[in-house]
């Protein structure tokens, strides 16, 4: 048992369980907190994949900024509690779970049928090299400058759009 296996199973278990707990909680704040736990364990998984920069960004952007936005909106509104999870429309919900399980089985079949690990064995040096902020920054500002500028423009448009949508109508 080396450290990678232990970390994968610990973080993967936390991620899977917290995602299930998130969709079954009635209270929106508790669901948001479980989602933050899920994002944090995903950051741990990114670290076991040697993606340091993405792990840090995951904690700062997702678990920090986006979830704070969600919690603020939950506290601004007062979402009435839904009924207990399977009480309203149990038939439709069971149908939804059957569909989801069917798609999951399909995905598992595709993953095991194509066997990607036979084609791409792990090369540790390349993997560590790919995750550093240096190589990501190099490729970002060399080959992907235009998408980078487009992302900045998208953020500007989203800021203005959010302001206009959420402001009080004065006229």
């Amino acid at each position: 048992m080396n450290l990678e296996i232990i970390f994968f199973f610990v973080f993967g278990f936390v991620a899977a369980v917290s995602s299930i707990l998130m969709i079954t909680r009635n209270n929106a704040v508790i669901a948001a907190l479980y989602l933050i736990l899920n994002f944090a364990s995903l950051a741990g998984l990114y670290l076991t994949l040697n993606a340091q920069f993405i792990a840090v960004t995951q904690v700062i952007v997702y678990a920090g900024a986006i979830m704070v936005l969600f919690l603020f909106v939950i506290m601004l509104l007062r979402p009435e509690n839904e009924k207990k999870f399977l009480e309203a429309n149990p038939k439709i919900k069971i149908f939804a779970f059957v569909i989801a399980g069917f798609v999951f089985l399909q995905l598992i079949y595709i993953i095991f049928f194509s066997r990607p690990s036979a084609i791409i064995p792990k090369n540790l040096n390349e993997s560590v090299e790919a995750g550093t902020i240096e190589s990501i920054g190099y490729i970002l500002f060399k080959d992907y400058v235009l998408p980078f500028e487009a992302a900045g423009f998208l953020l500007l448009a989203a800021t203005i759009g959010a302001l206009i949508l959420a402001k009080k109508k004065v006229d």
Partner: peptide, 28 residues
């Protein structure tokens, strides 16, 4: 990580940008 290429992580970076924009507009 398994292919040893940075491009996938770059796209995760862009997905995070789009997710932040989407969260802001959607919550508005």
């Amino acid at each position: 990580s398994y292919l040893g290429s940075s491009v996938g992580q770059l796209f995760v970076f862009f997905v995070m940008t789009v997710a932040a924009a989407e969260a802001a507009v959607g919550l508005a």
